[in-house]
Amino acid sequence: MKPLKLEYHVPGDDFTRAGEASSKVKNILKRMGFDSDTIRRVAIAMYEGEINLVIHGGGGDAFVDVYPDRVEIALVDHGPGIADVEKAMEEGYSTAPDNVRALGFGAGMGLPNMKKYTDELSIESVVGEGTTLRMLIRPAEK
């Protein structure tokens, strides 16, 4: 079955718009009758990813494919890339600048949270070229 394809551009360094895409996805999933736990996991994981696009990626694009049995999210940026992916996955590790921390972001929980709420997560990153982060979330078996 072909998925429902959703695409959003996430502008870099514009905090006032951060969270818009994940909020839209959440409302679409609600209309489609996904269970609330799945919706919550998608919303939180995607929100964290969106914030990363804004803070670190210099903006980027979010591609969401919705299948009846899974939601696939790809977040693509052409930012600086992640030098040490393993380190970035550690709780509390953050490279967010001070001005971003002042807003309450940059606690180093973004990637760990994304991992926690998703069934699969993969990161392809090339320093100087950009990062593609893929997440997959499956509704829990009933």
Binding site: M1, K2, P3, L4, I28, K30, R31, M32, G33, F34, S36, V66, Y67, P68, D69
Partner: peptide, 23 residues
């Protein structure tokens, strides 16, 4: 108790199809 009055269909596959058509 939650009342899902905004839901497109009780069947997720059907809802995906409808959402694509709406899109």
């Amino acid at each position: 108790e939650f009342a899902p009055v905004l839901k497109l269909s009780d069947n997720v596959s059907e809802a995906v199809r409808m959402m694509m058509e709406i899109d």
